[in-house]
Design a protein around this nucleic acid. Structure first.
Lengths: 167, 167
DNA sequence: TCATGTATGTTATAGCATAACAGTGCAAGC
DNA sequence: GCTTGCACTGTTATGCTATAACATACATGA
């Protein structure tokens, strides 16, 4: 993750979706995982939405397209994608988002805009290292970590300043 | 937060509870907040448990003691405590824990043992600074953040090594 | 072909959280 | 004193999130 994340910028979304989907297939196949229709469709849904979605929201779309109507159908596909590093769980939102950097830094930090709900991935190597440095003296061995920030994205931040320039 | 957290060490728990409760009252009063019986009792419950508790678990205890039996009773008291920095929400566990360092670093990181469920607070200033450094180039303004690590506490880590010394 | 394992699908239920409204009690101002 | 306002507690009701347990389908390889 060497470039600024795209989620807070305009970009050719159709292209990025297609590209990410192709990379996802490659990643899954490389790991011997079966990229079945439901799983693929769930990733597509997340990519199309280009935002964090609740499991039930994903499920509604699946159901509308003839897939299973029950929660486990969505949860299992989402769990698979998360395990493969193709999607992430955003705990603060109880939601899931397609990974925008598959194959790279697989434990990113999330920046969540409280105004518009946009979620961007940010590089988390440095915060994670700092956290490990803080945990080591306590004898704690870190296996996974969740780093999420709530705040304002550039757009909403600008809008807020505009609306109340004197505060 | 200048000393190692106590949660992974043995200590005089009755004393630490009493001490923390007294400090909590001071903190609440200093902020003009009303430290009512329910709120106080919820904090006591969290302190006595000395671990993360679900809202319903807290509620059960409240109900057993003659307080309200409905979820909002617990959620409101917990929300109050979190706002005052007297307790924290551990998102990974959908649970709440008494703050062990009231008045100090109010956005700590949490170290969650996946084996025994213990939760400790760790200093988060450094990870937070690193996260802000990562967010700044994206134009994102951080307001609050969640930093949680899952892993093994010293005790469980040692136990795991003992049980399978060759892996 | 048949056994095995993986994936999908269903039913049912558990667990987490909040909206909306009612009653209570305290405190400030008349 | 009274009443007006406000914060707190409590209730009913509901919605959202998540998983356990079991049934079915389907591919792969012995």
């Amino acid at each position: 993750m060497t470039e600024p994340d795209l989620a807070f910028s305009t970009h050719d979304h159709a292209h990025c979706s297609h590209d990410l989907l192709a990379r996802a297939e490659a990643v899954a196949e490389a790991q011997g995982a079966r990229f079945t229709p439901v799983r693929r469709r769930v990733l597509e849904i997340l990519l199309e939405a280009h935002r964090a979605m609740g499991a039930y929201e994903v499920l509604d779309r699946l159901a509308a397209e003839g897939y299973g109507k029950q929660p486990p159908v969505a949860y299992r596909a989402l769990e698979f994608l998360v395990e493969q590093g193709l999607a992430h769980r955003v705990r603060r939102l109880n939601a899931f988002a397609a990974c925008t950097h598959p194959g790279e830094d697989h434990a990113p930090a999330f920046l969540i805009c409280r105004a518009c709900g946009a979620v961007a991935e940010a590089p988390a190597l440095a915060p994670r290292a700092a956290l490990e440095a803080a945990a080591a003296p306590l004898g704690f061995v870190i296996e996974r970590c969740t780093i999420e920030a709530l705040g304002l994205c550039p757009t909403c931040s600008a809008a807020a300043t505009e609306a109340a320039p004197c505060t």
